[in-house]
């Protein structure tokens, strides 16, 4: 089991109000799954994503990622886990504006301690994998939205993480480009990657193989998606 979440709760203070963002949820995800997490705003899906992504720790319950209990790790230990196990894709891409595509993709490798020459080679290969072999020396402002998101996906892939965690990955893209990005995720999943997409769009969620719906900090449904006619 890649992700094993048991009776996990997250409470936090919003001003003076105690909010129960996640209420005793349990969930498991296997390697090579393609999961969409859905829910309206305030449903707790962002909190769940932050915890799965090791950016945050639960108030109670357990979370085991790739055999390692991560619920009680320190900030630096979480950073190491994120570096090794998680590849993030954000709605706003979050690329370094002054660095070219290649350098943006290299970033996780820097913190992994990979030597420069080796880093270059790996980043190059990864950019080719997402179809940007000819845009390596372009800065983010010289790239289209779709291309930027591809750079971000290459950055997420470069460390060979256990999970690609995408937060509204098509939110800032037009529908055609959005389709292309979702196609890329499907291809990556077919190649063996585990993908978790957080979204509020039904159409995007439908591209995955399993949809988990949240409401008020609880899982309200967990269904397998039937893909009738393959493209």
């Amino acid at each position: 089991m890649l992700i094993d979440i048991r009776a996990l709760s997250k409470k936090y203070l919003l001003g003076t109000v105690r909010v129960l963002a996640l209420n005793e949820i349990s969930l498991s995800i296997e390697r090579n799954e393609y999961v969409a997490i859905m829910g309206p705003s305030g449903s707790g899906k962002s909190t769940l994503m932050n915890i799965i992504g090791c950016l945050d720790v639960p108030t109670s319950g357990s979370y085991t990622l790739n055999g390692q209990a991560v619920a009680s790790l320190s900030d630096d230990e979480l950073a190491t886990i994120r570096n090794k196990e998680i590849g993030f894709v954000f709605q706003t891409f979050n690329l370094l504006p002054r660095a070219d595509a290649l350098h943006n993709v290299e970033l996780p490798l820097i913190y992994k301690g990979v030597p420069k020459a080796e880093r270059r080679i790996i980043a190059r290969e990864t950019l080719e994998k997402v179809g940007l072999g000819d845009r390596m020396d372009h800065k983010p402002n010289e790239l289209s939205g779709g291309q930027r998101q591809r750079v971000a996906i290459a950055r997420a892939l470069v460390n060979n993480p256990s999970i690609i965690l995408a937060d509204e990955p098509t939110g800032n893209l037009d529908s055609t480009t959005g389709e292309e990005i979702m196609k890329l995720f499907a291809d990556l999943n077919a190649a063996g990657n585990t993908i978790i997409v957080v979204t509020h769009e039904e159409e995007i969620a439908r591209k995955s193989k399993r949809i988990i719906r949240l409401r008020d900090g609880r899982i309200v449904s967990d269904e397998t998606v039937e893909h009738e006619a393959a493209v």
Binding site: N83, N94, L107
Partner: peptide, 16 residues
């Protein structure tokens, strides 16, 4: 700030 958030997300420790 966002750059710092991103660097941390991809594995930068406090010391980095």
């Amino acid at each position: 700030t966002r750059e710092i958030g991103l660097r941390k997300a991809v594995g930068a420790k406090k010391n980095n």
